[in-house]
Write a protein that binds this DNA or RNA. Structure first.
Lengths: 93, 93
DNA sequence: ACTGTATTTAGAAAATTTTCTAAATAGCTT
DNA sequence: AAGCTATTTAGAAAATTTTCTAAATACAGT
């Protein structure tokens, strides 16, 4: 899965905004795009980055593409951060 | 403080590696640099990015500069991720 | 004050990312 | 199948990031 890709994906403000928008359920590419001041093509690019990093997944219905949070990846990221909790310092000052 | 900067900082593999190295205590810029196959100047650049994002802080002793994790920022990041836990979906399928 | 070690800054090249426009694809609906 | 709507892909320009070399700064020890 790769933290590199995941953190890269998270490093863009538009992409983080998209994730926040998806908290209360799936949205179509178009609805997501309409919240931003950029072309649909650009938003589509950001969605593809989020998809490649597994932070979201898509499902198709009619001619819409819906995006949805993949919460399991969030759990994995939390585990990465957990590496920094607890285990303490060598007071080598 | 700015999540934008923080996530940007975390998006680079070398910088994440530096953070992992710092888990067991402070290290000098030179010691950090010697673990990488890049020039000291480049590592210095990465350290400055980590510093600007408050993920690490520095202290000087003799002619060494020591870097250390700033654990409080990690807590804040965890809070950002916490936004994605719990509060659930609108089953608007 | 000079020398040496540790680190950062400046400036430029290379690589990557973000964004756009235009065109392509996909799948209704009539 | 033709036309519409929704979305993605292609290709290029602009912006940002990463990296390097060379020079600058900082400061300790002699």
């Amino acid at each position: 899965m790769g933290f590199a890709e995941t953190f890269k994906a998270l490093s863009d403000p538009a992409r983080r905004e998209i994730l926040l928008m998806l908290r209360n359920g799936k949205m179509s590419a178009g609805d997501i795009a309409s919240h931003f001041d950029m072309t649909g093509a650009t938003v589509s690019y950001h969605l593809s980055v989020l998809k490649k990093s597994d932070l979201v997944f898509e499902s198709k219905k009619k001619n819409f593409v819906y995006y949805e949070l993949n919460t399991s990846v969030f759990e994995e990221i939390m585990l990465w951060f957990a590496q920094f909790k607890g285990e303490n310092n060598d007071e080598t000052e």
